[in-house]
């Protein structure tokens, strides 16, 4: 209990908020890192998954890639990248490692969502003379949107959580507060950093839940 009050005091101490090592800057770094990685991984994963799902090909690949992704530690990927030429681009290794980490859930969910679209509906669309592109954008995509968005939510929450690891390799973000706390042997600071990260992850999870609840009709597509 004592540590918790100490952590709270550390967190609410105005000294710890401003400056390049301050909470405000670290929070911003964390958010920017997460958003950039989420956007990049969506741009990489979603088109591939949608096209594969539309064509009905590469299913084994899409599903297995998420199992493989789980087995490869992000921390190891991050350090490996850090030691390659990519390591010289500042936040480059972090972004690449996090994108590699976020692509599997996006890919798998979008692919499964596309394949779970009722085959009868797809055949009806084809019978109405829709082209492949029309079927993809007007039938399959709207119907699979809930699954696609679930994948985006999972990826976003995991990115917020995993971006912490960037600090172990000298990157920015809230993880730096934790690693700095470890280096200073300051348990209140470590706990305060952990509370911030955990809180941020829960807020992102909650936000996505809220968005899903607010836009159910649109997200489910017109029947």
């Amino acid at each position: 209990m004592n540590t918790l009050t100490d952590a709270w005091e550390w967190l609410t101490d105005p000294v710890h908020w401003p400056g390049p090592d301050g909470i405000a800057h670290r929070l911003l770094e964390h958010l920017v890192l997460t958003v950039v990685c989420l956007v990049v991984s969506c741009l990489v994963a979603l088109p591939v998954a949608l096209v594969l799902g539309h064509l009905g090909k590469g299913g084994a690949l899409a599903v297995n890639i998420s199992n493989v992704g789980r087995a490869v530690p992000t921390f190891a990927v991050l350090v490996l990248l850090l030691l390659t030429p990519v390591g010289r681009w500042g936040e480059g290794p972090t972004v690449v490692a996090l994108v590699l980490f976020a692509v599997p859930p996006l890919l798998t969910n979008a692919y499964v969502g596309m394949r779970e679209v009722d085959r009868g509906v797809v055949q009806a669309a084809r019978g109405m003379g829709m082209t492949g592109r029309q079927m993809l954008f007007h039938v399959e995509l709207p119907l699979s949107l809930p699954m696609v968005l679930t994948g985006v939510r999972i990826a976003a929450v995991q990115l917020v959580a995993t971006a912490t690891i960037a600090a172990l390799a000298g990157g920015g973000g809230l993880g730096r507060i934790i690693t700095a706390g470890f280096n200073l042997a300051s348990t209140p600071q470590v706990v305060a950093g952990a509370v911030l990260v955990a809180g941020l992850a829960l807020v992102v999870e909650g936000l996505f839940g809220l968005v899903e609840r607010l836009a159910p009709r649109w997200a489910r597509g017109a029947p």
Binding site: L4, V160, A167, F182, V191, A194, A201, L202
Partner: peptide
């Protein structure tokens, strides 16, 4: 949802 690094840190005390 709590990140692993944060979890280890929270349990530190």
């Amino acid at each position: 949802t709590i990140p692993s690094l944060a979890m280890f840190s929270l349990l530190l005390p």
